[in-house]
Amino acid sequence: MYRCDNCNITIYDNVDVCPLCHQVIDDISEEEEAKVIKTFGAPSPYPDVRKITKRTELAMKLIVFLSIIAEAILIVINYFTTPKIMWSLVSGLAFVYFLFSLRYWISHDSGFAIKLGIQITLTMIILAVIDHFTGSKGWSFEWAIPGIILFGDAMALFLMMLNRQRWYSYTMFLLYMELLSIAVMVLHGFNKITNIVMPITCIALSSLFMLATIIFGDRAFYREFRRRFRV
């Protein structure tokens, strides 16, 4: 314990200079220290959390650094092997997608259903963009996006079974899948999707799950709906 004559205060920290005025200070006698502790209580130090924080940050920075290096190598390989097809753009997009997802899942505090909904939306966008850059063959709308919706339906069912006590917390996610299915059907109506099988499958499955949720969920479903849509 120390005493700063300039500030006229006692300092609990184990330091040689006053943290406030930076004057070199001297420690106080044991008697004086006992008196201070009797008046104000014993010191209550803090842990060195700087080290812990830095370790987490370092891991994230390392992943970003390695991703950039990997993408740079892929660009070089792309340039010297197949300069006419810029496939390294796709890998670049994949790295961005991976880093964003990693950061989002680790640090964002949305619920699991919201995270899954956003991840599904992002995946759809990424696939549509990749499709666009690789010749616009339409595979993303025909197969990939409806496939993701079906995956979303399956996830909703799986999560409801897994978390049976709070199954209703995934109803909004299911509703979102239903809306996406309708959107896919609308795209079919505008001839953006030629194959009818996938849109029909999506809307049938999503609607089936939704109907089952409404009928079997009964009061819990309505309560969840009321909570979520309270004005």
């Binding site: 500030c7 205060i9 406030l20 104000f40 130090p45 803090y46 060195d48």
Partner: peptide, 28 residues
């Protein structure tokens, strides 16, 4: 910077109040 904290505690100490301080070591 701890200049505001310094002035604050100095002012109070100058009024005859017995002051002791403790930090969370971030400043070292």
């Amino acid at each position: 910077s701890l200049s505001i904290q310094k002035k604050f505690f100095q002012l109070i100490a100058n009024e005859g109040v017995n002051v002791a301080i403790e930090t969370n070591d971030v400043y070292y």
